[in-house]
């Protein structure tokens, strides 16, 4: 007998997890090559720091904000 196959993203939890995974992969991609190659330079300097360093710090900031938003929306959906 064949088991029913659950495709990721069909249940509410699965859908949330799918979005989370997509976001996590995105954040990882901006920090590694080839995308990180766009930022792999010194100029323009921001706040005195080399551009590549600010790039990493900036995306960590974005990561934090998006994660908070993601969690809040998840809580709200569960409350409904």
């Amino acid at each position: 007998m064949k088991q029913p196959v659950e495709v990721a993203g069909t249940s509410p939890t699965g859908r949330n997890n799918l979005w989370f995974i997509i976001f996590a992969v995105f954040i990882a991609l901006v920090m590694v090559f080839p995308i990180f190659g766009l930022a792999n330079r010194v100029e323009p300097r921001v706040l005195g720091m080399p551009f590549s360093m600010i790039w990493v710090i900036f995306w960590i900031g974005v990561e934090f904000v998006v994660l908070v938003a993601f969690f809040l929306s998840e809580e709200k959906r569960e409350a409904n």
């Binding site: 090559f33 990180f36 792999n40 330079r41 010194v42 080399p50 590549s52 360093m53």
Partner: peptide, 8 residues
């Protein structure tokens, strides 16, 4: 040099 901040 600038290379210090450029990976690769």
């Amino acid at each position: 040099s600038e290379d210090f901040f450029i990976i690769g």
